[in-house]
Computed example of a mutant assay.
Amino acid sequence: MNPFSFRKRITVPSFAVMTGGTGGIGCEIAGLLLEQGWDVLLLTRQPRKAEEQISGSKGRFEAVFCDLTEPSDLQTVSNAIRDRNQPIELLIHCAGKIQPEATRDITQHSLEEQMAINLTSPILMTSQLLPALSPNGHVMFVNSIAGVMPLQGSSVYSATKFGLRGFARSLALEFSPGTLRVSSIFLAAVDTRMLEQETRDGGSVLNFVNQPLSARYVARMIIRTSEGAGREIFLPRIDGIFAHACLVMPWLLHITTPLLEKVGQIGLRRFLKHKAAASVVAHKE
């Protein structure tokens, strides 16, 4: 039995399936797609919250409960989506989980949760939904600079993101040019609740070497990327250049980290000051 139902249509609009829609980036992506007239189906553990946050005047939005850490949930929802018989033009893996912790403090729970949300569920869901994807559809993985450059203090998160890059690149090789497109978007820090929580949990100050990107800007870049050929993009671009340089020359990260941490501390203080001021204004309103 389907966990959700769909109304039949005579005219079938473009159809997008997405995870991670209750975070800042996901909300913005869904809103932009809806304004363009897309049908958007969000898989989330908080469907009611998603419906309160996301709306659009042109497209149709549905939020369906799905726990990405439960393979049985993924299979059930994937079966229901395939039963709809509406080609998926856009599959966006936007959900993410980070738990900053030293390697000696890693627990089985944090390991399994980050692995499931960041790596296992995108792999399983992509595999299960391939039969439902349009021949010229686009699979998009919202990744992190931590998938190119090791992130001290968040080794599990970095490992999952490195793995996600490998999967996306391997997936792209299975399809001829002009058919299914595969893209990965590698993000530096983005001004979202996830970043705030990561900071409270002791996340890396390197997040604040540059000013965190706005979720709206990132969402627009993701939508723009979805309209073209499959590729990898890095936001900001300079972070991607530096991360690749560190892969080729591992010593570069070691010698630059002390300076980057000092710059990051300044950026963190600026970020916290800005958030405090915004909170005061919001409270007065």
Rank of each mutant, 00 (worst) to 15 (best):
M1E: 15
F4Y: 07
T11N: 08
F15R: 06
A16S: 13
T19M: 00
T22G: 02
G23M: 07
G24W: 02
I25M: 09
L34W: 09
R45S: 12
K58N: 11
F61E: 11
C66S: 13
C66N: 01
P71C: 07
A80F: 04
R82F: 06
D83S: 15
Q86R: 15
L91H: 02
D105C: 00
D105G: 00
D105H: 10
S110L: 10
E113V: 11
I117A: 02
N118K: 06
L124N: 08
L130M: 14
P131M: 05
P135Q: 14
N136Y: 11
H138C: 01
F141I: 09
N143K: 01
S144V: 00
L151I: 03
G153W: 15
S154Q: 14
T160F: 00
L164E: 04
L164F: 05
E174Q: 12
S176E: 15
L180D: 08
S183G: 14
T192W: 02
Q197I: 13
S204H: 03
L206N: 06
N207V: 03
L213F: 06
S214A: 13
S214T: 14
S214Y: 04
A219N: 13
M221Y: 10
I233A: 14
F234C: 00
L235H: 01
R237P: 00
R237F: 14
C246F: 08
L253W: 06
H254P: 01
V263H: 04
Q265G: 15
R269M: 07
